[in-house]
């Protein structure tokens, strides 16, 4: 007994190229091309110090992008990741500097703050059915305001705990291989990316992330606890925001309460450039990491070429539009 094949031409049965895989390949090629072009235009670009600069610049945005990748694949959006990051760094600073808590406790407080914001986001979206764009836009402002309130509008410095900054900007690798002084924040980025990738591809949470973005109603009818898993996805994004907050605090040796807004757009851009579909159901961690590197490499290269800051922003915006357009063109061709 053979079913459902009668009306099907052989052509339609050949497996189509997976769209996100193509985009990943394209993004990687673009990254290589950008690196080549800048290294030709400026001899300073491939200097070790500059490469490390790019890596450091990618760390925070990259980690934010990891979290938002999950949210976007699940078919929602999280605009609050930037300011939640700020709130997390402020909470870490309050614990460590003002309440003299041990550094690990401060880190835990920062990450928990992010997780809590994620739980609230997830509850608003999944339980109260508020569209994620609106709910997280609200959270963006709530977190921004809270960061200012808690910090008393002033930066909080980690001057009493120099180890905090050293842990982030010191180099474990440099200790093992002299000369290769890649700061630990970069290791944190790659560590987080590895964990995120494993979560997305090998765990139940990852499977349901794709399922939600692919057809939420179908998932619900299949008996999947849609509300619970959606909250979990937002919580995961919140945790990554928290980690990013701790990291940016350690890197700057201070919590800057007015920083953070706008970071969410760079992170979303990284995910989209890396092939995560804004309509949900498609995306990968590798793609997002490549996307984050494209953004920071571009910004860095333009700065080296003395292109003014405001024009750098224009270019990044253009790249995002181009990436989304290419994605749409490819989808159209597939059909």
């Amino acid at each position: 007994m053979r079913i459902g094949l009668a009306a099907l031409s052989p052509a339609r049965r050949t497996t189509l190229m997976r769209s996100d895989a193509v985009q990943r390949l394209l993004a990687f090629a673009a990254l290589i091309a950008i690196i080549l072009i800048f290294s030709l235009l400026s001899p300073n670009f491939l200097q070790f110090d500059n490469v490390v600069g790019i890596l450091i610049a990618t760390a925070v945005n990259g980690i934010l992008a990891l979290g938002v990748t999950f949210v976007i694949i699940s078919g929602s959006i999280d605009l609050s990741i930037g300011t939640v990051m700020t709130l997390s760094s402020v909470m870490t600073a309050v614990f460590i500097t003002e309440w003299h808590a041990p550094v690990p406790v401060g880190i835990l407080a920062g990450v928990s703050t992010g997780a809590l914001a994620g739980i609230v986001n997830g509850t608003l979206v999944a339980k109260l059915k508020i569209p994620s764009f609106i709910a997280t836009l609200g959270m963006l402002n709530v977190a921004k305001g809270l960061a200012l309130v808690v910090s008393g509008l002033k930066p909080i410095y980690f001057n009493d705990t120099p180890d905090f900054n050293r842990a982030a900007m010191g180099s474990v690798i440099g200790g093992v291989i002299p000369g290769l002084d890649i700061p630990n924040v970069v290791l944190v980025l790659f560590g987080c990316a590895l964990v995120a990738s494993l979560i997305l591809t090998t765990t139940v949470l990852g499977r349901f992330t794709f399922a939600l973005g692919s057809n939420e109603e179908a998932a619900r009818l299949s008996g999947v606890n849609v509300v619970g898993w959606k909250i979990a996805v937002f919580t995961l994004a919140g945790i990554f925001s928290g980690i990013a907050g701790v990291l940016i605090g350690a890197r700057l040796n201070s919590a800057q309460p007015s920083l953070g807004q706008g970071y969410e757009l760079d992170a979303i851009a990284a995910a989209v450039i890396g092939g995560t579909s804004l309509s949900g159901g498609e995306g990968s961690i590798l793609g997002t990491v490549i996307g984050a590197f494209i953004i920071s490499t571009l910004t860095n290269g333009l700065r080296i070429l003395s292109v003014p800051q405001e024009w750098q922003t224009v270019v990044t915006g253009g790249i995002v539009i181009l990436a989304v357009y290419l994605d749409i063109v490819r989808r159209r061709q597939q059909q």
Binding site: R207, A211, S214
Partner: peptide, 15 residues
């Protein structure tokens, strides 16, 4: 009521 981005197998055993 299938999830188009998942494979046939992943759809069948979702949840």
């Amino acid at each position: 009521s299938l999830m188009p981005n998942l494979t046939a197998a992943q759809n069948i055993f979702i949840g």
